[in-house]
Design a protein around this nucleic acid. Sequence first.
DNA 1: CTATATAAAGTGC
DNA 2: GCACTTTATATAG
Length: 169
Amino acid sequence: MQSPETLTYGFGDTPYGRIVVAKSARGIRAVLFGETDAALVAELKARFAGTDLVPAGIGMTRMIADVVSVVRGEAAAGALVLDLRGSPFQMAVWTALQAIPAGDTASYSEVAEAIGKPGAMRAVAAACAANPVAVLVPCHRVVRSNGALGGYHWGVNRKRALLARETAA
DNA sequence: CTATATAAAGTGC
DNA sequence: GCACTTTATATAG
């Protein structure tokens, strides 16, 4: 492994709970939901073990506020620069997810077809589960074909709340 | 609701 | 590199 990458993280508050935003030199690396700051940091450490995690400094506040705005639906996710790392398949899935209009939902099979791999619905779900940026990649807009929510890495309850707000808007 | 089909990622060896 | 296990599903019974 090379020299550990430095990730700067900071906390923010959303209608759905507390979030932590981890930013690399390239862009936003992760946006995670959590109950407490300690839990969020623990999540970061678990997910980015081996990297150098640095608490937010001055200047991070602005970025946090921006992310929070996006989470609240007051800003476009496309305005943020993401630094997503993953398998080509995961990248394809995440890109396809970002193409889903706000307030609309797609089934896992829809996403699978969108990435040119019809029948890969379960793999899509797995890729979504690995999605590190929570709301910025709208994995919460992906539901089952029968209309059920399915599952959510950060809790179906949270997914339900997110969808409720977006569909209402 | 339960069982089966079926594709892909993750993990371990 | 190969095989086994698990999955946030889909579809049929």
